[in-house]
Amino acid sequence: MNINLTLLLEMIVFAIFVWFTMKFVWGPIVGVLDERKATIADGLAASEKGLKDQEMAKELAKQKVKEAKLEAAEIIAQAKSRDTQMVEEAKGKAVEEADRIIAGAQAEIDQEVNRAKDSLRTQVSELAVAGASKILGKEVDASAHKTALKDLIAQI
């Protein structure tokens, strides 16, 4: 129960003990505890952010799908109208072509008829001259009856 030098020595021991604990025990351990706390907090924050991002991505994906659907519908509608347009165009072209072909054929036919008429005309005048000379027994001068022959040809 005596108070003596032990008191001072114990105070020195206590001071050294506190210093030692502060430097080699408390510092590292609390540092690691704080580090782990920070890591956990970061992880929680990251997971929350991840969830938010996922939600946003879902929303974005939904929007994109909607847009794509709209676009697709538009494209289909466009294609359909283009289709009918093309058919119409083709029809028009075909009719035109047909008309052109018919017109060509008609022109050819007319040309052929004219040619046949022409050759017929010359043959008719020759035939008329030959017939007349046979009937008359003498040669008929074709140039003398030029006008008459021309009339005849024109009648044909």
Binding site: N4, T6, E10, V13, F20, F24, I29
Partner: peptide
Amino acid sequence: MGFMAVHVDSMFWSIFLAAVFLFFFTRVAK
């Protein structure tokens, strides 16, 4: 003996226990 005396047992056991504590805790802290 008065003031000029030291309790050897108190000193020994208190330092011994401090050493035990520091031994385990610094080993973990390291």
